[in-house]
């Protein structure tokens, strides 16, 4: 009796079923928009979003958090989940992102390139290398041959941006999409392609997902033209 009603719920009847989507912090705005659009088309699906740094999300899933879909900000953390045997099917790349230097509006320190971050009097802060953004920032500096010691290793991109907005730090390296989301509060300085790092975002259904059919459908939506154009409107590059 109970099993039958549960099955009816999964079968897309009148009852709604909940889909738990875990997504990297940098996907916050884009995934909120996509989940909203998707739920309009599928009123029987209730999407619950959980945003955090990708390694935190993977740890949560390892510790048994209920997740149906994971959207990661790098391949390394996706590989970690796969090594744990917690993925179902292959992860698919759904977006790319790039890095930019973030400075205060008006660029008071006159920062034009990565090399300027090492100038005396410039307070540079980074994300900790434990989150993908921090790793990418290190790679970009390495490519450009710049050695600079960050004054702080922040827990995520958003804290880097807010510290620059508050004027505590002069520059940081963040995703293009985060700059777009921050609007006029801060300003971006482009990093040339040869020094830039392309962040790859893979998405996967989590093994043992309560709602694997809905998980697959949502992933298909993210990869569809509609999903891709939403991602593009937030500054993501196509898969």
């Amino acid at each position: 009796m109970i099993a039958a009603s549960l099955l009816a719920g999964c079968g897309g009847g009148s009852q709604t079923s909940t889909l738990y989507v875990f997504a990297a912090a940098s996907l916050t705005d884009a995934f909120k928009a996509m989940a909203g659009a998707y739920q309009k088309q599928h009123p029987d699906i209730d999407i619950k979003l959980n945003f955090a740094g990708t390694p935190t999300l993977v740890t949560q899933i390892e510790q048994g958090a209920q997740a149906d879909v994971l959207a990661s900000a790098d391949t390394a953390n996706m590989d970690r989940l796969k090594a744990d045997g917690l993925t179902s099917g292959d992860a698919q790349v759904f977006a790319h992102n790039q890095l930019e230097i973030v400075v205060a509006p008006g660029n008071p320190k006159g920062i034009k390139a990565l090399a300027d971050l090492a100038k005396p009097g410039v307070i540079y802060i980074s994300e900790a290398a434990t989150v993908p953004a921090g790793k990418y920032a290190q790679q970009a500096l390495q490519k450009a041959g710049v050695t600079v010691r960050p004054r702080s290793l922040e827990a995520d991109v958003k804290s880097v941006i807010s510290k620059i907005e508050l004027g505590e730090a002069d520059a940081g390296i963040v995703y293009t999409t985060d700059l777009k989301a921050a609007g006029a509060r801060v300003q971006g300085v482009e990093i040339p392609a040869e020094d830039n790092v392309v962040a790859t975002y893979p998405i996967v259904a989590v093994k043992g997902a309560k709602n694997s059919a809905a998980a697959g459908a949502f992933i298909a939506y993210v990869l569809s033209e509609a999903g891709q154009s939403t991602l593009a409107s937030f500054g993501f590059k196509p898969a």
Binding site: G53, T54, P55, T56, V58, T59, I125, A128, T130, V131, P150, R151, S152, L153, E154, A155, S159, K163
Partner: peptide, 27 residues
């Protein structure tokens, strides 16, 4: 601490900050 002083090993990274940042990569 993490809001006001930031996080850098040896300068501002105290034990609770180290615990938090390690959780993702080195539980």
């Amino acid at each position: 601490t993490i809001t006001f002083a930031g996080n850098f090993p040896g300068v501002t990274q105290t034990m609770p900050l180290a615990v938090y940042l390690l959780l993702g990569t080195n539980p």
